[in-house]
Amino acid sequence: MDFIFKGMAQGLIWALLALGVYLSYRILDFADLSCEGSITLGASMASMLLTKNVSPIIAVLMAFLVGCVAGAITGLLHTKLKIPPILSGILTMTALFSINLHIMGSANIQLNSVPTLYTQLSGMLHLSKTYLSLILGTVVCLAVMAMLYWFFGTELGASIRATGINENMCRAQGIDTDLTKIIGLAISNGLIALSGAFICQYQGYSNINLGVGAIVIGLASIIIGEAIFSKVKNFFFTLGGIVIGAVIYRIVVAVVLYFNMPTEDVKIMTAFVVIAALFVSKYANKIGKKHPAAKHDKKEEPSIPEEKEVKDNA
């Protein structure tokens, strides 16, 4: 069973990536590929600082901040230079590859000999690493979910949500959509870098290729989460669904590895999991949509009430 718990623990830290991708992909409707670079950026930044004996908490916060900067750059490229979303993300991702190498000084950093969040906390709490990472991951995810729930309920957060739905309406209502996009992408990439900062400490090393395939992992988590929690309306639980989606994804990967499948097959299994989740979500949508839609036809879409019309004409 230990491999399941390990998968769950990893899922909880990869969930931060999924939440970040959710912000750009779903809320802002912006397919942001810079996440592949910013997750590595978070890992590079945190591990470089850790090897310089910086406190793990500060290293994690710094990773979040540089992630925000990376996201803001993607946002600036898109809004100010009018570069299409995908290309803006690719440009940032490409540039980050060099930046990450410069930060780390090499393609790998080992963290075995330096204190990390995990070694420090397990020393303090006398817990095994797996249980500690489960608890820490849960606490961090709940905290991030709570903060996102609060933020997207504020005036600024609501205008970011509206930007992803209808930019035209936003500008007519006086929202600076360039600014809301930049803020949204900054938070998104900040969370993704935060995920990287936890991943490197959990696995004990940082690698320049850590971010390869991150976008697929993020999207897979979102798709799995949404497929399972398709009926959830509350934003907090939607976010929770994505966290659980990330955990499920990692458990699947852990199972694959446990049964000694060759490591070169992990990627193809990843693809299969996503395809399966898409299949399930399509199937779930078919069942799930039937009832609400039937209800809308009757209740939710009376054009203009007939009785009122009659009264007005009279």
Binding site: F151, G153, T154, E155, L156, A158, S159, Q173, G174, I175
Partner: peptide, 10 residues
């Protein structure tokens, strides 16, 4: 519209 959007509840 025409006002600053802050971190107050929406």
């Amino acid at each position: 519209r025409g006002k600053k959007r802050t971190l107050r509840w929406s």
